[in-house]
């Protein structure tokens, strides 16, 4: 196995990076793949809570980097999926406790034993962001159909281009089709128009996401919600499958999404 490192980032906070990581990880692991998630948000960790693994943390990523434990010891196995692991962030340290080359070393160590390594980036474009993208083979940028989130995503795309990373892909999260229809929300086309990067997923707004993250059970595991399905489709696209975008509501939107997919 040669694991692929996927970093999920956004620039802006609160757009759904952690939710995306948790759900993609569950979707990939449910498909029989071995997946390790790394929480890159040292000092403000969340991924453990969303995955419902908070109470099992003994060692964290800083312990690995500083040699207090073996990598394996800090990998927490998921409650439901035996092939899903989490390396939590340290809560009592800051981003400077880990360097970009530490992340590269850690991922290189994990790569032979796993299929996917998903890194949850912190918001912002400083040290934590640079740690998160250092080892990435592929970067997914999460944005919301909202001007400020799209502007920040644009900044991140620019930084990735400057670092000569592979072209990132875009996830438009929390799309509300009826608001788009009324013209009160940016459409996927509007977002694409500015960013001009490949769209790998469109996730509709869904109350179940909040319920699920409070329960610590990623949506993708159980509920038959549209958001869960959208995340599963993104996972399939990461595996190289051609999956059409969800029909979110009106035909008009569907046609536009189909056009968008064809444009790639």
């Amino acid at each position: 196995m040669t694991g692929k490192v996927i970093t999920i980032t956004s620039g802006k906070g609160g757009v759904g990076k952690t939710t995306t990581v948790a759900n993609l990880a569950v979707a990939l692991a449910a498909d029989g793949k071995k997946v390790v998630c790394i929480d890159g948000d040292i000092g403000l960790r969340n991924l453990d809570v969303v995955m419902g693994l908070e109470n099992r943390i003994v060692y964290d990523i800083v312990d690995i980097v500083e040699g207090r434990c073996k990598t394996r010891q800090a990998m927490i196995r998921d409650k439901r999926l035996p092939e899903l692991f989490l390396i939590p962030a340290a809560q009592t340290r800051d981003k400077n406790a880990v360097s970009p080359s530490d992340m590269v070393r850690l991922c290189d160590e994990l790569r032979p034993d796993v299929d996917w390594i998903l890194i949850d980036s912190p918001a912002g474009i400083e040290r934590g962001f640079r740690n998160a993208i250092a080892a990435a083979d592929k970067v997914l940028i999460v944005t919301n159909p909202e001007m400020s989130a799209v502007r920040d995503a644009d900044r991140v795309v620019g930084l990735l281009e400057a670092e000569e990373k592979n072209a990132p892909s875009l996830i438009v999260n929390r799309l509300n089709p009826s608001m788009v229809k009324r013209g009160d929300m940016l459409s996927v086309d509007d977002v694409y128009d500015l960013l001009r990067i490949d769209v790998i997923g469109i996730v509709p707004e869904d109350e179940n996401v909040i319920v699920a993250s409070n329960k610590g059970v990623p949506l993708t595991i159980e509920a038959r919600s549209k958001a869960g399905l959208a995340f599963r489709n993104i996972a399939r696209r990461l595996n190289g499958e051609q999956v059409p975008f969800l029909e979110l509501e009106s035909q008009g939107l569907w046609e536009r999404l189909a056009r968008l997919a064809g444009r790639k």
């Binding site: 474009i125 644009d154 900044r155 795309v157 620019g158 281009e161 001009r196």
Partner: peptide, 8 residues
């Protein structure tokens, strides 16, 4: 000859 993105 490329697009200048936010922050440049």
């Amino acid at each position: 000859d490329r697009t200048l993105r936010s922050g440049v």
